[in-house]
Simulated scan of single mutants.
Amino acid sequence: MSRPVFRFAPSPNGELHLGHAYSALLNQRMARAAGGRLLLRIEDIDTARCTPQFEEGIYRDLDWLGIAWETPVRRQSEHFDDYAGLLRTLIAQELVYPAFMSRGEARAHIAEAEAGGRSWPRDPDGVPVYPGLDRRLGERERKRRIADGQPFAWRLDTGLALAGLSGPLAWDELSGETGLARTVEADPEAWGDVILARREIATSYHLSVVADDAGQGVTHVVRGRDLYSATAIHRLLQELLGLPAPAYCHHRLILGPDGRKLSKSLGDTGLAALRAAGRTPQEIEEMVGL
């Protein structure tokens, strides 16, 4: 019987903070309790913001915390071809479409609809869902616009994708405290037609994360509560692409003094700054409630 596989997957676009420390420590604790493995993945598809310096900082901070991970470390920037292959599969299935509306055009369309008395739907993050007018474009018009160099993003036709499923979507949600699981019904339609790739980058967080979890054999995804609702999209992609579904555990967030989720721009909660101020790994565990 294979061992459970957990993973910690930070992005090297800033320094790790207390929230990252809690997630990494919880992953390690749960992996050890289950007799499992812990992987480290560097999620660096945003090549404009991610830097080698921040990546090196991740290794230093995790090592200081006493986190042990398997090598080699998977770096997303080395697997763009894998993500592009999955995107081509969805294109061939006609489950994605090129979306040409800019953010400004989408905002203007939504504002006009709301001014006319229409209540525009918001996704779980509170952002207006994409209008999806491009779904009605014919193949010839799509090809013409692409050939003309018009910017576009590949969006999932969520309604069409759901219509092709044989049954309802759900995932197993684990409790980090008890380990007990409950079934959560997935509602991908609440997100509208999400972006899966852009013309210049053939992937997105949604597409790359399900590809990586499957490719690395991840069985348990332990991550922040802020990604709870996004799991619905990940479950849909797993079904469409024939990928296995791990169990999920969405842990509490470590909040700042203002009650909001910590940001990498908050230097006073950065692990490097706390280390430089003389804090110990044991104190970090106490600060995050472990």
Rank of each mutant, 00 (worst) to 15 (best):
S175W: 10
A111M: 08
H109F: 15
R275E: 06
G104L: 15
I195V: 15
T280H: 07
L169Y: 10
L18T: 06
A113I: 02
A147S: 09
I195R: 01
L25T: 06
R3Y: 06
S229N: 07
L62V: 04
P4L: 05
G278H: 12
S204Q: 03
R140C: 00
G116H: 08
A111R: 13
A230L: 05
G117I: 09
E15C: 05
I195M: 07
M1N: 13
D44L: 08
Y205C: 07
D61S: 15
A181R: 14
L253R: 02
E55T: 05
D172T: 14
R41T: 00
R140H: 07
A277H: 12
P131D: 03
A277F: 07
R198D: 02
G117M: 10
I45G: 02
Q28P: 13
G104I: 11
F152K: 02
T51K: 12
P52E: 05
A202F: 02
P10R: 00
R252M: 11
I233C: 10
G259P: 04
I58L: 02
P281L: 12
A34F: 11
L39H: 04
L156N: 00
A147F: 02
L240A: 02
G85F: 01
R88G: 03
A115C: 12
T158R: 01
E105G: 00
R225H: 15
P244D: 11
A276C: 02
R225G: 12
A24N: 02
M1H: 13
E43I: 06
V288P: 10
E285M: 11
R136A: 15
G167C: 09
S265L: 10
S11Q: 03
A247N: 09
A186W: 02
R279G: 04
L87H: 01
G164Q: 14
S119R: 13
V127R: 14
L18H: 03
Y205T: 08
I146Q: 12
L237C: 03
R223H: 11
G289W: 14
Y205F: 12
T203G: 07
Y83A: 04
W154M: 02
A33Q: 15
A190N: 03
D226R: 09
Y228I: 03
L174I: 09
R103M: 14
E177S: 13
P151S: 09
A115K: 13
V221S: 04
R49M: 01
R75E: 10
A214F: 10
D61Y: 08
E56F: 00
A161D: 05
R3T: 11
L243S: 13
G217T: 12
V5T: 01
A108M: 14
V73G: 13
V129S: 01
L253P: 03
L162K: 00
A33G: 03
